[in-house]
Design a protein around this nucleic acid. Structure first.
Length: 505
DNA sequence: TTCCGACAGTGGGGTCGCAAT
DNA sequence: ATTGCGACCCCACTATCGGAA
């Protein structure tokens, strides 16, 4: 199959807003693939995720290529796939030059339309309104099998191209062949935000409430003599977490798959800031690994000593979990009253954790989905801050002022101190309003930023603050989002940076 | 007819590894 | 030694489509 056909399909998918039409177009191109190998490549390209993963070249590298476009189309998807493999393989001294060489050659053979597609694909900005979810439906359509069968196979294999290959090659039977396999990670179940503790407990009852900790998600597979540890995105990090491996080896079970959170603690038992856990988590250096001990807190069990539990209700998985992990269980309470749920939440916050998770005890493990069966409840802090400037948006926000620069009041009377940015929480209406209003209040601008005088006050919700090497006040907001503008307030009435700093414990 | 689940898009801060300077 | 890029952790929220109620 030619790259042109894939690129034009992407354009076709991007041109319609109808999801059914997107699925039609994608299913069509999958049916026309010449081989099973080609199906994998086409699925990868049109879901925005090349099989090579990240290839070590981003927007900066691509911008430096700037070759002229070929006049005629000649590239096949197989050739492009080979070029990406060669690019990803480059390492060591001269790797950047080698990548530029390969990609430069590839781009020189591509037409203008093909270049645009490749550029979007490699920077992760396909913006065709179809990624994994829509592609799953397209695979089901192309192979004429139920969507649920495709979704399940994807959840278990974690790989979309391999799922598509099985569906188109062997149909429903091949898809049913995917099972939970030890040392092959499944996509983790995700949670959605809950409105309040009372509502979450009420709507999910009978439920389980447990601590929500501020660390990194881990999935652990154990068979006799072997332990593997994976991240939320299914990356294998076994080699960089030896203390977790050693600990799992000692657990009172032979074969298991566990889901949990890992983080580092202070000497007094309280959690270290997320930044410190991440520093340790991301490192592969031995001294760093020895310097800070990661601890696991398990909250789910997908397999125990020969028994698959994915489809079992949480109640049963929780019983298996308790048998499997000993005292490395995350603190929680089964079928609490509202009062007990509140007590647990207070205890979690008091211990320095983020909040709690509320989970329906009758629910199966719906991997890879952000369903309502798991809800997180965290306290929200709101502050009145000053808008210092705004940046022009991209994509569907092109031509609109989007990303706000936020400042806190200086208690000593100086100019506001920048503490972060946000683009979240803005409706189309608000985007349109601020684009017009801010240009009236403009003091000056550069390429991407419009700076304001007569700065408006905006109410911002946030999860907390963290220390920052970037901002002048040495703190930055975590997960800031707009609640509403406060035209009734002046910058002199905004919250101070000291009030924000008080959030740090 | 209305409601709501699922999806994609739009980006935020921080840290690490690695190669180039 | 420092800097910049790329990758990957954590994450909230809105708009939209189309099936469910």
């Amino acid at each position: 199959m030619t790259l042109t056909e894939v690129a034009s399909t992407s354009a076709e998918v991007g041109a319609t807003r109808s999801r059914l039409a997107k699925v039609d177009a994608l299913a069509g191109v999958l049916r026309r693939a010449d081989s099973a190998d080609e199906v994998e490549v086409v699925v990868a390209f049109l879901s925005g995720a090349p099989r090579q993963g990240r290839i070590g070249a981003g927007w900066r590298t691509l911008a430096s290529l700037a070759p002229s476009a070929a006049s005629g189309a000649s590239l096949t998807v197989g050739e492009v796939d080979d070029a990406l493999t060669a690019t990803a393989r480059a390492s060591g001294k001269g790797a950047a030059a080698a990548r530029a060489e390969v990609l430069g050659g590839l781009f020189a053979r591509a037409t203008a339309g093909e270049q645009a597609f490749l550029r979007a694909l490699l920077t992760g900005e396909l913006r065709q309104g179809a990624l994994e979810g829509v592609m799953l439906d397209a695979i089901a359509r192309a192979a004429d099998v139920p969507g649920t069968a495709v979704r399940r196979a994807f959840m278990l294999s974690g790989r979309l191209p391999a799922t598509a290959r099985a569906a188109l090659d062997g149909g429903a039977e091949a898809l049913a062949g995917f099972g939970l396999e030890l040392h092959r990670p499944v996509r983790p179940m995700l949670a959605s935000p809950g409105t309040s503790l009372a509502e979450a407990v009420e709507s999910l009852s009978p439920c389980l409430v447990e601590y929500k900790m501020d660390g990194a998600r881990i999935q652990v597979h154990k068979t006799p003599g072997r332990v593997s540890v994976y991240t939320r995105t299914l990356r294998d990090i076994t080699a960089s977490v030896p203390e977790l491996v050693a600990l799992v080896e000692q657990l009172p079970c032979h074969t298991t798959v566990l889901d949990g959170e890992t983080l580092a603690l202070r000497d007094d038992g309280k959690p270290r800031p997320f930044q410190e856990t991440m520093s340790r988590f991301g490192s592969t250096q031995e001294e760093q690994i020895a310097a800070l001990l990661l601890r696991p807190y398990f909250f789910d069990c997908l397999h125990l000593d020969g028994r698959d539990l994915l489809d079992s209700p949480l109640r049963e998985r929780n019983e298996a979990l308790r048998a499997a992990v000993g005292d490395h269980l995350i603190p929680g309470v089964v079928e609490p009253t509202q009062e007990q749920a509140e007590e647990l939440t207070a205890a979690a916050l008091d211990a320095g954790h983020e909040g709690v998770m509320v989970k329906g005890l009758d629910s199966a493990y719906a991997a890879g989905r952000r369903g309502k069966a798991w809800q997180k409840v965290k306290p929200v802090h709101t502050f009145d801050l000053v808008v210092l400037a705004a940046e022009w948006g991209h994509g569907r926000r092109a031509g609109l002022l989007s990303n706000l620069h936020l400042g806190a009041r200086d208690p000593d009377g100086g100019p506001p101190i920048m503490v972060g940015k946000t683009f979240k929480g803005l409706t189309d209406e608000l985007l349109a309003w601020q684009t017009e209003e801010f240009q009236k209040r403009e003091s000056h601008r550069d390429d991407w930023v419009v700076h304001l005088e007569d700065q408006p006050v905006v109410e911002i919700a946030l999860d907390g603050v963290q220390s920052s090497p970037r901002y002048p006040g040495s703190i930055a907001l975590r997960f800031a989002r707009v609640v509403r503008y406060r035209p009734d307030k002046t910058p002199a009435e905004a919250d101070t940076i000291d009030a924000l700093k008080a959030l740090r414990n």
